[in-house]
Amino acid sequence: MSEEPSSQSSRRSWLEKLADAFSSELRDKAQVLQLLQEAHENELLDQSALHIMQGAMKVSDEHARDIMVPRSHMVCIEHDDSFADIMKKIVASSHSRFPVLSEDSSTVTGILLAKDILQLAQDYHFDAEKIAANLQQIIRQPVFVPEIKRLNRLLRDFRETRNHMAVVVDEYGGVAGLVTIEDVLEEIVGDIEDEHDPTEEKDIEQIDKEQFRVAALTEIEDFNEHFDTELSDEEFDTIGGYVTHVFGHLPKRGERVVIADLLFTVQSADERRIIQLLVAPASQLPIPLTTTDTSALG
């Protein structure tokens, strides 16, 4: 009987601390995070709720450039792509939205939704010439955001305008990458998987002519066989472990490194490990990164 008042007093004390933290004129994020951790330890928040609240605070400090898909890994519709070309890209990537490039591929002129072109194809009974003649009618205006756009403001803009994708531009107005509302939400709640995400059974999946999606748990032996490389498997069993070692830290989404003339981009990761990698020839890089001599690792 004596324990209940003590428990209630502890909970009231914690709630008072939280109220003081949010009502204070100068808000200290570190203090709020500490209070949230205490709430979890006092069983007022479960692990999932704690993770979401921590993620929600984190997005106010991150920018579009921190989570964007870099330009070299964007799946785009070229100016002269045929209906067949477009359909191949839709099927291979499983994406629902695609940037449309200008004639010289220097900028993004629109966004094409997979559902729109499928509806157009149905309306014209899959007649390729008629589809091509009417394609511009379904291309939507792109939304551009600067690299330094904060994620909390970007999420608000996505909600207010009902857009799901934005093209990220650098300080010179050039296309740096793209970001989606799902990318922002994943920073808050963690990876969002759907039925189109690659499964562990398919460790290496080709996306386009030179780009592959590779599960971090892929055995190094299998990776070497597929890419004709000679990465050492003496210290690490998986490509994710090998790449993490090369980085020298647990990398975040979007970080890149060149190993054995291949460009590795972290597509997804959590607090403990890399989950998915994008692998392409290092020649896709507009500016060379520091390369790694893999012979020194094994």
Rank of each mutant, 00 (worst) to 15 (best):
K89T: 03
M57N: 07
E103K: 14
E62G: 01
I111D: 00
M74H: 01
A56I: 12
D81M: 07
M87T: 14
G55V: 03
S94T: 12
A64Y: 01
A39V: 08
Q31T: 11
H73F: 12
K88W: 10
Q34S: 11
H63S: 12
E62Y: 05
M53D: 02
K29P: 03
S72E: 12
S93I: 00
L44M: 14
L36D: 03
L50V: 09
D85T: 02
L101W: 01
E103Y: 15
G110A: 10
V91I: 13
S23P: 10
A21W: 07
F98L: 06
R71Q: 06
E62K: 13
H79M: 06
S106A: 13
I90R: 07
A84M: 11
E41A: 07
E43P: 04
S93N: 09
A56G: 08
Q34K: 10
L35M: 08
G110V: 11
S48F: 03
H63Y: 07
H51L: 08
L18P: 04
S24E: 09
K88D: 15
S106Q: 15
Q47D: 08
S82R: 10
A30R: 10
S102E: 14
A64T: 07
H79W: 15
D66F: 09
D28K: 08
E43Q: 09
D66H: 12
L18Y: 12
Q37G: 02
S23D: 13
M87E: 10
K88V: 04
D61N: 09
K89I: 02
S106K: 15
